[in-house]
Write a protein that binds this DNA or RNA. Sequence first.
RNA 1: GUGGGUGUAGCUCAGUUGGUUAGAGCAUCGGGUUGUGGUUCCGAGGGUCGUGGGUUCGAUUCCCAUCAUUCACCCCA
Length: 404
Amino acid sequence: MIQALRGMKDLFSPENEKYIYFIENCSRIAKNYGYEYIETPILEETALFKRSVGESSDIVGKEMYQFIDKGNNDVCLRPEGTAGVVRAFIQQKYDKAKVQKKFFYYGPMFRYERPQKGRLREFHQFGVESFNQANIKEDASIILMLRDMLDFFGISYKLELNSLGCPDCMPTYKEKLVEFLQNEESICPDCKRRRDTNPIRVLDCKNKSCQEIYKNAPFLIDNLCSTCSDEFEQLKKILDKFIIPYVINPKLVRGLDYYSKTAFEFVSDNIGAQSAIAGGGRYDKLVEYLDGKPTCGIGFAMGIERLMYLLIMPQNKRSGYYIGALCEEASEICFDLAINLRKTDKTNINYDIKSLKTHLKNADKQNARYCLCVGEDELAKDLIWIKDLENKAEKSISKNELLG
RNA sequence: GUGGGUGUAGCUCAGUUGGUUAGAGCAUCGGGUUGUGGUUCCGAGGGUCGUGGGUUCGAUUCCCAUCAUUCACCCCA
């Protein structure tokens, strides 16, 4: 038997309904915030991710589905969504036009890792990207939007906030941190590796003895330049005003190299070790990294599978018709009936001749609102028997009334 | 890439201290005298016990390998 690749899942009921429900409502809310839908290719040139996500990240280092295609191009399946949208933005010359653009997208992402709870090799994200909005209010808006979405679905969360600084304050901080780390030889091997590759990352090491040491480490949040520091204060004020509870997590670093300034993560305690349900932040230099004109940007992405663990669907109401024939002679009229009803309503037909009892059972199981049956009695009088499964009312109506 | 758990019916799982026809619940199908559902009663079908090898008179059970799956680490949504 051929089965789906490791870490890749088929989507059946009821998850498929959840997925649609999630996408539809996130899209609706994003549109309210002025976002428009964008779809970018799932396959992109490998260099795009190397330059945006960053060579030092694990994503690029070991998790990409990368291969050489028949035209000898080095390509890979997108591991995240922002890079593609930024590439599209630049390719469309929106950077030169200096326009403000806001996009939302959703779809599959691919990372070659060992699957576990809340982590698949093919997973789905819903994300948004806002270009050319430097105002800190936009940072707040994007967090407010995410709050709206999670609130709509009744999903509880914790918001963690940090500032990663800008090219003015980040490099000097980094030097300070590396200096601190030079004197700490008792840190774990992973952290020693990070010290060289990506020093900021040591801060969210899960090793307890490391965390003990980092209590005394310098934090970026205490070393921001005046601009970054002011903006961060403004952001907190807006979030306070709109009553969004948050915690400042000075150890919060985003995994992708392109982030700067505002960084945030929405986390949940109820989905296993992979607790981040959404993450995002500013990336004011990314457009330049990808050869565009300087254009600031901010965005986030939600892990749809992780959110679906937490999402409870509203009760499914009975809807549509179920049609069944009670005798062979009635099967033709039943088929005609189905064809006609399908022009306006969800209609399922059972081609098998069954007893009324069986048809009612089936209609009930399918959660149909109405059960329509035709037997010898109805055929004789050109009637259709119809029962409302919700209020149990039943009647026979003339065939012409339903066949129009 | 590293470590642990688990593979028995469509699903969720019992079980055999190694012994002859492997069980339950749910689901499916049929029936409960002529055409009435969701919470009834009765019955039926369905499994080479993940795969390959080893030990044994005998393996679904013990051992090894392999594959799949799951959880965790690394990392991330």
